[in-house]
Design a protein around this nucleic acid. Structure first.
Length: 891
RNA sequence: AGGCGCUUAGCUCAGUUGGUAGAGCGCCACCCUUACAAGGUGGAUGUCGUCGGUUCGACCCCGGCAGCGCCUACCA
């Protein structure tokens, strides 16, 4: 029908996507008689670009959504994009830096204009890239995390949590990025194993000549020391508790305290305590009511408290401190030391524990219910092993620092009274201070952690805090698909906040996938230069090939290695589908579209065994695919279809059918045409959720079809039972026998080096009349597919100088006999037979050994023993045949 | 330090109630056969990480060890 012999996705994909979109096929309805199915898209960063991680994430979701849509669900895939606070701010700051400016040069307002400008420029890009992948989102509902309705939800949540005493403000030690000049959460700190040093410093004990030696990896922090600690039971030092040491360099008197936190075995057993710059020391400082001396500025320089070191960077201060200590002979020892140093996840700057006033979510009360839903199975993790990780984190969770000293994000809805310092928390700016009624109110400068708004995503995108039909219909959603790297950042917080504000889980299943790595297993990164661009791959090979490659390679939750070579393999599969269609359409040129469409059955009497075989196989495939998809076993589903289409449908069915198609018109031919058309129709539908573009393109050309593949029904054994009823297991066995006969002839040809151009004569010696009839019916196919010139189906007496391969299947047996006289060197055939006998003998030995084991016969289940006996008999018979023939060849 | 995962063909991985080890890609040989050379046919390839246990029987179940990876973590 004028199709090109190569599938060219470039000509197809844009058009098809527009077709779907313009027909509204992606849209889900708030009110529908269909059962709901919903997935919330993890919103990509609006300034980012589509990467392989998205390709993986989205392919899974789109496959699920399309599958459910075709299965009769009111399927909603709700898309959105994320403002990604710190990440985006950093990108724009980098941009400014090129102009030699900082965000401070512009000021808050101007800087935010710049970010919005950036968002406008790059915002649509990610959406367009998603469309290139084929994402069938309901774009009418596209939401940005800074949209007004989301902001409203954010403010409502903040205020309510505050009123419920679940949000508080306090001065705490937090992780501070001196470059971003903001607090970050524990999760945003990346611990990198670093080669450092452990310096041993002597602190003179006041009024004695004694010195206590402390060890530290960060000597500059000594400027903020407010105590040294020893273990209270440590005989070496316990007497000193209560006395003071003189802090070198600053000559400050600080107490010696006892605390069981100290490990007597480590170093000298004495620890310097810097409550304002170390998380452990902070706790000790708290316990012992020590002074908290902050020695750093927000940008990580030393401040007034550092005396002579004021103004130095941490790095410079460290060097200077060490130099000065050395000069005073107080640096006792310096040793190499490997330890994990916290780095800012966004800009890789070393994180400093820093004392500052921040907003926190009191997390325990939120975490408990979130823990219970995972324990009870209300939320199921897939793979299941993540449940444990999640629960472990939940039970060790600490309060969440939600304020960021950034400009890009949701401004904290708190107003500080300039007169009485009261903090007024409200959804909108209050007129007057709630305490002193002053109107001098200034909004808090900070913005919220990006993940705060992300945590509300499942319901904020559905119109919350308003009551909406969307929520009634689609909340809780069915499945969340995301990478396991954000299980704590995002998944956990959605569960906590969803339970708290919606009184129900946000989703029932969490499907966690790994990350996409390069062919060598390295993480893809811009700096390594090994990052593949999915859009480029789509340009080159098509979205379907990319999607199918991903689906085939998903190994339950594990990282995946991706290579373009592999992709080309699956692109070839797309081409295979295309060409099978091309052939089929040509074969169906004179086919009359039946009125009952997919329900039209052929007359049983006109059906060939091949037709009943392929339909039987189709039924098996439909069953497997459904099971696999239900279990999120995407690679099994994809591979099942790959095998069926390529190996059953293309390699065998289409070849079997050719003689019929090319033959004279007949009712049998019509029946075969119907089966061909019906099978192709189902293949297209089965594949559609995975490879939507090519299947939609093909669908439009099918003689049997409905409106569009995307909204047609997904075939399952239940829904498709009428059609599948013509399949037959009996026929399947017969065809398998014929296939084996053909394979046997091909093997003889191949192994003996008989060229394809060389015609041969074949005798098929059947064990009984049924087999003879069966072979007769398939004679044309056998001759075609094995390249046989002459085929005799009959008893054969003389077997001299012949290659003989016995084919045994159930009760049916066929001797495949190829006379070799004058064709080949008999030696070759002797070699081939020898090889076959050897293999067969090995199997016989194994089986004999097992069956002669009394214990096996006694203990193994009867059916296993019986089956093995059968197998052994068949093997032996085959062996005899082959040996006889070998003897004849050698005589 | 704790937790989790992995180790099967050259590479990537299947192998779900324990019953003669599989696929794709790659490789070798032969073929431009009228859907497809992005194709067809045939072929080669494994002490299933290691040691032990359970069992008639172990890639599969149990334990030890080794190697790799990931996550969590306050040892100065």
């Amino acid at each position: 029908a004028g199709l090109s012999d190569r599938y060219t996705p470039q000509e197809v994909e844009g058009r098809i996507y527009q077709f779907w979109e313009s027909r509204g096929h992606f849209n889900a309805e708030d009110r529908s008689t269909k059962p709901p199915y919903a997935i919330i898209l993890p919103p990509p960063n609006v300034t980012g670009f589509l990467h392989m991680g998205h390709a993986l994430d989205h392919t899974i979701q789109d496959t699920l959504i399309r599958w459910k849509r075709m299965s009769g669900f009111n399927a909603l895939w709700l898309p959105g994009t994320d403002h990604a606070g710190i990440a985006t701010q950093n990108v724009v700051e980098k941009e400014l830096k090129k102009e030699g400016k900082t965000r401070k040069d512009l000021g808050r307002e101007k800087f935010l204009d710049r970010v919005w400008e950036w968002k406008k420029t790059y915002g649509d890009r990610i959406v367009n890239q998603m469309k290139r992948l084929g994402d069938s989102c309901d774009w009418r509902r596209l939401t940005f995390t800074l949209d007004e309705n989301v902001s409203q939800a954010v403010r409502r949540v903040f205020v309510q949590l505050y009123r419920q005493d679940l949000i508080y403000r306090g001065t705490r030690l937090v992780n501070w990025c001196p470059r971003c000049e903001t607090a970050v959460s524990d999760l945003e700190v990346e611990h990198i194993e670093t080669k450092g040093h452990l310096w041993h410093i002597a602190y003179p004990v006041e009024g004695t000549s004694e010195k206590l030696v402390v060890a530290t990896t960060r000597p500059e922090t000594m400027l903020g020391d407010t105590a040294v600690a020893v273990h209270p039971d440590d005989e070496r030092y316990s007497a000193l508790i209560g006395k003071n040491v003189v802090l070198p360099l600053l000559n400050r008197k600080i107490p010696i305290i006892g605390d069981t936190y100290v490990d007597r075995e480590f170093g000298s057993g004495v620890v310097k305590i810097t409550p304002a710059h170390d998380f452990n020391d902070y706790q000790i400082g708290d316990r012992h009511k020590l002074k908290f001396i902050n020695i750093l500025t927000v940008s990580g320089q030393l401040n007034d408290e550092a005396g002579p070191y004021k103004g130095l960077s941490v790095k410079d201060a460290r060097a200077k401190v060490l130099e000065d200590l050395k000069a005073q002979n107080l640096l006792v020892k310096e040793e190499d030391h490997r330890h994990a140093v916290g780095h800012c996840e966004r800009c890789n700057t070393v994180i400093e524990p820093f004392l500052s006033k921040q907003w926190f979510v009191k997390i325990k009360d939120l975490a408990n219910p979130a823990q219970r839903v995972a324990e009870s199975g209300t939320i199921v993790f897939e793979p299941e092993s993540w449940t444990k990780t999640y629960l472990h984190w939940m039970s060790n969770i600490t309060d969440w620092c939600i304020s960021r000293q950034l400009w890009w994000g949701h401004r904290i809805p708190a107003w500080h009274c300039q007169k009485c310092q009261t903090v007024n928390v409200a959804e909108t700016k209050p007129e007057n201070c709630e305490k002193c009624k002053s109107s001098e109110l200034v909004q808090d400068d900070d913005v919220l952690d990006t993940w705060f708004s992300s945590g509300l995503w499942p319901f904020s995108t559905m119109g919350w805090p308003q009551e909406t039909e969307t929520q009634k219909t689609f909340y809780p959603t069915n499945v969340l698909v995301t990478g396991h790297d954000i299980i704590f950042f995002w998944v956990a917080r959605m569960i906590m906040l969803g339970l708290h504000f919606k009184k129900d889980v946000p989703f029932r299943t969490v499907y966690l996938h790994g990350i996409v790595r390069d062919a060598q297993g390295r993480k893809m990164s811009k700096s390594l230069g090994n990052a593949l661009d999915p859009v480029e791959l789509i340009d080159k090979h098509g979205a379907d090939a990319l999607r199918f490659t991903i689906l085939c390679q998903i190994a339950s939750g594990r990282d995946m290695k991706f290579s373009e070579q592999r992709l080309e393999g699956y692109r070839n599969f797309m081409n295979k589908i295309w060409n099978a269609t091309r052939f089929s359409l040509a074969a169906l040129e004179d086919f009359k579209t039946p009125e009952q469409g997919t329900e039209t059955l052929p007359k049983k009497s006109e059906l060939s065994q091949v037709d009943r075989w392929i339909t039987y196989r189709l039924g098996q495939v439909e069953r497997s695919v459904e099971e696999f998809l239900e279990q999120y076993r995407f690679s099994d589903a994809a591979n099942t279809l790959y095998d069926f289409v390529w190996h059953d449908f293309c390699d065998w069915y289409l070849e079997f059918v050719k003689p019929v198609i090319y033959g004279q018109p007949s009712t049998e031919r019509e029946a075969t045409q119907l089966v061909l058309a019906q099978t192709l129709n189902r293949i297209v539908r089965l594949l559609h959720p995975m490879v939507p573009f090519i299947t939609e393109e093909i669908y439009a050309k099918l003689p049997i079809r409905n409106e569009a593949a995307i909204v047609d029904q997904y075939p399952t054994v239940l829904r498709d039972r009428t059609w599948l009823s013509i399949g037959s297991e009996e026929a399947a066995h017969e065809i398998e026998l014929v296939k084996e006969v053909i394979a046997a002839i091909r093997n003889i040809r191949g192994e003996n080096g008989i060229k394809p151009s060389q015609g041969i004569k074949v005798f098929l010696d059947p064990s009984d009349g049924d087999v003879q009839k069966l072979l007769g019916k398939n004679k044309t196919s056998i001759m075609r597919m094995a390249k046989v010139d002459e085929c005799v189906i009959d008893r054969v007496e003389s077997l001299s100088k012949c290659a003989v391969t016995p084919v045994v299947r159930k009760d049916s047996r066929v001797q495949v006999i190829v006379p070799l006289e004058g064709l080949v060197d008999i030696e070759e055939e002797i070699k081939r037979l020898g090889k076959a006998i050897e293999k067969n003998q090995k199997d016989i030995n194994l089986m004999t050994q097992r069956l002669s084991n009394e214990n096996f016969v006694k203990n193994a289940p009867e059916d296993i023993v019986a089956k093995d006996k059968e197998v052994l008999e068949a093997l032996k018979q085959k062996n005899n045949n082959m040996r006889e023939n070998l003897a004849r060849l050698q005589s």
